[in-house]
């Protein structure tokens, strides 16, 4: 089976800093791939190149058999890539349901419609998505007043609204309580398997990573230093060096 996402020799520098340096990997449908590494390793930069937010310096990104390097975020989204952000990005003046409806409206190509209430569109579908992430009971609340963990779940619902083949989640559980984290990733894993979505996520909490990933990539100072199953990565000397602090240059934990 061909992978949903294939990344080849991706690279990006900021000034002299090689934020992402010759990174290659692939993700298959229904699988969860964790991208880990200390702060500043280049994870977010990598994500931003995948969905077109940042132009890459080198390398190419192939999604669903198609080269997507150089496309704009909205074009990448149209092809079927959903994304959540490290710092949640939702529409604060809209209710939880409206946030999801907005994504559905865009997906249905109704953005330019000048009449008819937006509120009345795709209600059932939006509610189904909210039910799936456990936010249905808060559907009427404004996103601007939600607790952070709830916002992350809204983002998840928004990100899967266009039935993506690939989901990019940058630190989906940052800012949540430990129990909430496991629950959210369990939910993500369930959705991914059920819908056959490939998921690439970054995460700091190793419990979450080991419990819910099919494979792990380890990034350090822009370079991919290890990849494999949880056990292999856990015992990799290079990874241990980065994570146990013998690599004095990295600041993560």
């Amino acid at each position: 089976m061909s992978p949903v996402l294939e990344v080849r020799n991706l690279g990006k520098s900021f000034g002299g800093v090689r934020a992402v340096d010759d990174v290659s990997f692939s993700v298959e449908a229904g699988k969860l791939l964790a991208l880990i590494g200390p702060n500043g390793a280049g994870k977010t930069t990598c994500f931003n190149m995948l969905n077109g937010q940042l132009p890459s310096d080198r390398g190419e990104v192939i999604f669903d058999g198609r080269k997507i390097t150089g496309l704009k975020p909205r074009e990448v989204w149209r092809l079927g890539v959903g994304r959540t952000f490290q710092i949640t990005a939702t529409f604060a003046s809209m209710s939880v349901r409206e946030n999801v409806q907005m994504a559905l409206i865009s997906h249905a190509g109704e953005t330019w419609t000048l009449f008819g209430r937006a509120k009345d569109r795709h209600v059932a579908e939006a509610d189904a998505l909210l039910k799936q992430v456990g936010m249905l009971d808060q559907a009427e609340r404004a996103c601007g007043v939600l607790a952070y963990g709830d916002l992350k779940r809204v983002e998840l619902a928004v990100a899967i609204a266009n039935k993506p083949k690939l989901l990019l989640m940058d630190e989906p559980t940052a800012g949540m309580a430990p129990r909430e984290r496991i629950a959210l990733m369990a939910l993500t894993a369930e959705i991914a398997r059920e819908r056959g979505i490939a998921v690439l996520f970054t995460e700091h909490d190793m419990d979450v990573v080991f419990a819910h990933s099919d494979a792990i990539l380890v990034l350090d100072r822009g370079k991919l230093i290890a990849k494999g199953r949880a056990e292999e990565v856990r015992n990799d000397p290079a990874v241990r060096a980065v994570y146990l602090g013998s690599g004095a240059t990295s600041g993560g934990h």
């Binding site: 939702t90 809209m94 000048l114």
Partner: peptide, 28 residues
């Protein structure tokens, strides 16, 4: 007023609230 409450008005507000999210759900 009708436009404000129609999908276009929502898309407009979406762009105001979060350009990042808007672009990430296909809104130019």
């Amino acid at each position: 007023r009708i436009i404000v409450f129609a999908p276009f008005g929502y898309a407009l507000r979406a762009g105001r609230d979060s350009p990042l999210r808007s672009e990430a759900i296909g809104l130019p």
